[in-house]
Nucleic acid binder design. Structure first.
Lengths: 209, 209, 209, 209
DNA sequence: AATGAATGAGTGTTCATTCAT
DNA sequence: AATGAATGAACACTCATTCAT
């Protein structure tokens, strides 16, 4: 390993994520990535063919990791108690996303642009439901969760009232906390309260408090 | 080729909204706005001091119009029956947003960037709750909606499980419909079903079906 | 005509010709063209979409002008005496080329590259023989010049032993004169002697002296 | 992947010649040479101090080889019959150049640039006349060829109506054959016909047919 | 002898903005 | 009110060259 190939490459991607999140992909400057990553700008092009391909690589890795997480929860942890499973899953998912909140920002921003590509956020959603949707629905029902039998309805409900609120919370919590002067822990528990009393309540079929 | 101030100015803003939505503010080019609006590029600078100020003007007008809509519903239409009021409000709000979906895209994108400004989406939310939050809560409760007495909690719930899903639906419905091959009317009713069975159910304190 | 569009455009092309000739198209720098033409670099791109298109425009104009010259000699000046016509033509052609020697340098250089385009020098040759080759041959023969009846042979002979020596003389005469310390007038008459005693002698069917 | 000095070095030069010819020296990329020669880019700099020095080495070797060829014909083969000598020389010279046509392309291209160096094509010409020009002229005359007694005139005639047509034929024959759909053998004989009936005719003092 | 990583100085091109009319 | 011309500062990307091993 002459010099430190992997370290440089990793550093570039980390900084790129930060700056893409901060300024948007189009607002980000390759020069700035180089400066902040403390590497020569040409080195970025030594590892990545273009600015866009840095982004694609970021998404690719994110999708890989997401896949693994999802699979592990529907396969490996299948033996957990239902209530325990839910909490474990929610927590793990939340932690996973919070650690990648910059990527989520980029993902949302890029999803809103009007190009021909599939919005990356749809790709992410598809990952979550990647396995046989039938199987997914059955496995959730078996666990006692109320789910629509209509697959299309199920996806709409899960996307707009589950995934989206969670992602939105993750990408906006810092700003919310700062601008409204709310402690982060309290904000988190308020969000969980909101999520429980709407989306979770729906799944559990309980009257919300 | 418009030869009068207002027409040109309006055309510029309309086209700017479209292009900012399509490519993002940073991805948009003043040249392209000029070309598509069929005005000379320098004319844009005759009416707007800079590219950013076009955006600010867009947001300003949007906020003005939003304000008016909100106020009208809490003041002018106060005499409507409760159930009728809710539906009328939801429909009017939805129509209003759908007509401005491009602005919403821009608003979300710009809100995600990390600059010192207040994210425009928070500004939009504040507009909705602009009048005395107390008064708002009371007025909702009076109408029979379950609302948290905790003002902070109320805002969190309304933002992440009401406003956000609605905005997200509006900005993604075209892509969703196209990519998943779902008819727009059906998508709308599925979204309404999702919204009702989670957020509305919470307000109405009913068991969701 | 706000400011001086045409002047700038013309200046850019003139300087581009000079620099492309001096350094080759690939060795030339747009920056240098801008500097030497005393225009802003971006102005170059205001008039020409790319560096390559500057070159294409240069060739286009050169070809137009060549066409006109050729046509004028085969049509307008058809009434001249034969010997007079030849000398007039040769002189006019020579003057025309000497005034455009930089373009010829570029043309030769670009013709040698291996891309899919037709080498510009072939395009130039085709211009010369553009009118019905038959007609051309007949018109030359009528004037008493020996010409091959085989069209392909005729083109080969004219290209390699007429056009090419002339072009080569034009593009190398300055360097020759400087490096071998030969006066330009003398060089010219030596070249004419060489040309007469080989190519012209062939056409005239005379024993060279 | 060659593991020995000479093979790598030779491969680099061969590929460099090909690419310099294809794209011009300035249009050629060291990266591309490395890729096509299947050697590491840094290895090129291990053998050659710079891109320019690759070119200089190419020319140096070409000139050496040319020298040898010329000398052999004026010394070693001096005992051949005159007519035989001429044909043998022309054929050998032609073959030699055809095998090096890529170098000739580079030579012409580089000769056209305006730098202070002696154009390599003049260097090549000087090689041919390197020995005492007097001696050369006498030796040609002795063989019965008509030659100008004026040394300067002789060089002009030989350069522009002998060397240049031959070089030009060699560097353009492939393109000519392809673009005009002429068989290469036929093209060669047409060129020889053109050359004979102009330049050779001059030397032989015969009326061209 | 050979290589993957790294770099400084460019290089063509773009862009928001301004000028002159 | 409107426009074609002009500009300075970037910008993504490239390239010859060197380093460290």
């Amino acid at each position: 390993m002459p010099r430190n190939s992997e370290a440089s490459q990793k550093k570039i991607m980390e900084v790129a994520v930060k700056i893409f999140a901060r300024k948007g992909f189009d607002g980000a400057r390759v020069d700035e990535i180089a400066r902040e990553a403390k590497v020569n700008k040409a080195l970025i092009y030594y590892y990545f063919k273009s600015k866009s391909l840095i982004l694609e690589e970021i998404f690719r890795i994110f999708n890989d990791e997401s896949s693994k997480l999802i699979i592990s929860f529907f396969q490996d942890q299948a033996e957990l108690e239902d209530s325990e499973w839910l909490i474990t899953f929610f927590d793990a998912f939340m932690t996973f996303l919070e650690e990648r909140k910059d990527i989520l920002k980029i993902m949302i921003t890029e999803s809103l642009k009007s190009n021909e590509n599939e919005p990356p956020i749809f790709g992410f959603m598809n990952l979550i439901f990647q396995q046989d949707i039938e199987k997914y629905i059955q496995s959730m029902k078996k666990r006692g969760f109320h789910m629509s039998d209509d697959k299309e309805q199920m996806m709409v409900t899960e996307f707009f009232t589950d995934i989206i609120p969670i992602l939105t919370y993750v990408v906006f919590k810092d700003k919310w906390s700062r601008l409204f002067g709310v402690d982060k822990e309290r904000l988190k528990s308020m969000f969980f309260e909101a999520y429980s009393s709407t989306h979770l309540a729906y799944h559990l079929g309980q009257k919300p408090k």
